[in-house]
Simulated assay, not measured.
Amino acid sequence: MNKQIFSFVTVCIIMGLSYPFVRKHTVMSFGGCSRAVNVNQYKIVKERDLLELINTCSKDGVNLNGGKSNYDYLKRNLKNFNCSQSLRFLSAPRSLVALASFPGSGNTWTRQLIETATGYFTGSVYTDWNFVGSNECPSRRRVFIVKTHLTSNSSTSHRDCTRIYVAHLHFACAICILRNPYSAILAEFNRENSNNARAHFDPGHWVAPKQMFTTKRWRMFVSKQVNRWKNMALYWIQKNEPTYVLVYERLLENTFLEMSRLMTFLNITIQYDSLYCLSADDNRSFKRIIPHWMTINNVYSDELREIVNKAVQTVKIGIDSKLNLNGVLNSYFLPIENSSRQMQ
């Protein structure tokens, strides 16, 4: 009899059938990644289950971390996958949350991810043209995530805020986006000095001309902006209000997991189908296509590396070791070669 049961269960597994005492242990692993993403689609995201899902898909050769390849995989394998979401304003006010970053650190992409995950518009202390939520002063409390590049907990120059006589905001907590300063400063220099801001999908456009990186202007820009990067990081990370440090490189590497953790910080529950739709928000939509010569190694001389490395070290010393950011900050250091470097 035992042999018969064993044989029947074996046949069930081979044929993809369910057997009562087999099903309980095969929800995630039985059928692999394709079955797992379907089973979880309308469930509430919990980190432990998400890690199990990522591990299950990894065994199938699927790197479930967000991005275009994930979107294509999910579109092929999910029975019902619809990311045509209608965003909305808050129906009830929430405390304001600063989305603070040095320019060039992925604030725009992060806002889009947050809007997709939550279904709510995000706002800004500026009047940004590309987000509906930026048209209103945050003090109207119809948005709660508010973009800022300022080392200030309250200032705003928003046009609508001026109209209703609001000059200051109050953030109950903050999300601080931390990105490698070498990459962020280069991105901001390109934004300010591009030769064609409307053609950023072509290599060499929406980037600074090559000759500018050997000028005093570039050296002065790095010296000034690295202090701004340092001050942004220290101001927001050291604040008394709760602050979530969102590391850009981690977000890029594992979008699903990092956004799940961010939602936990914001005390927002989301379903896996919302998380899956993050894969449609490819950060490449916001990235310049840069020419082959424009690398960090090429454009930062030893002199500039010393300046940037010193700022990274200052931030490393100034923040709480409990934040577990030492490894990230250590990865930002560039070696000093003490030799002349010419652009290739």
Rank of each mutant, 00 (worst) to 15 (best):
G133D: 03
E136D: 12
E136W: 12
C137I: 06
P138R: 01
S139Y: 05
S139Q: 08
S139I: 00
R140P: 10
R140F: 01
V143R: 00
I145N: 01
I145H: 01
K147T: 02
K147F: 15
H149C: 10
L150S: 07
N153W: 10
N153F: 12
S155G: 09
H158D: 08
R159P: 07
T162P: 02
R163N: 12
Y165D: 15
Y165R: 13
V166T: 12
V166P: 01
A167P: 02
A167Y: 10
A167L: 12
H168T: 09
L169I: 05
F171D: 01
F171C: 04
A172M: 11
C173G: 08
A174Q: 06
I175C: 05
I175S: 02
C176L: 12
C176P: 00
I177Y: 03
I177A: 06
L178A: 14
N180F: 00
N180D: 15
P181V: 02
A184T: 07
A184F: 06
L186Y: 07
L186K: 08
L186I: 08
F189P: 03
F189K: 01
F189R: 03
R191S: 03
E192Y: 11
E192K: 06
N193F: 11
S194Q: 10
S194R: 12
N195F: 06
A199D: 11
P203G: 11
P203W: 03
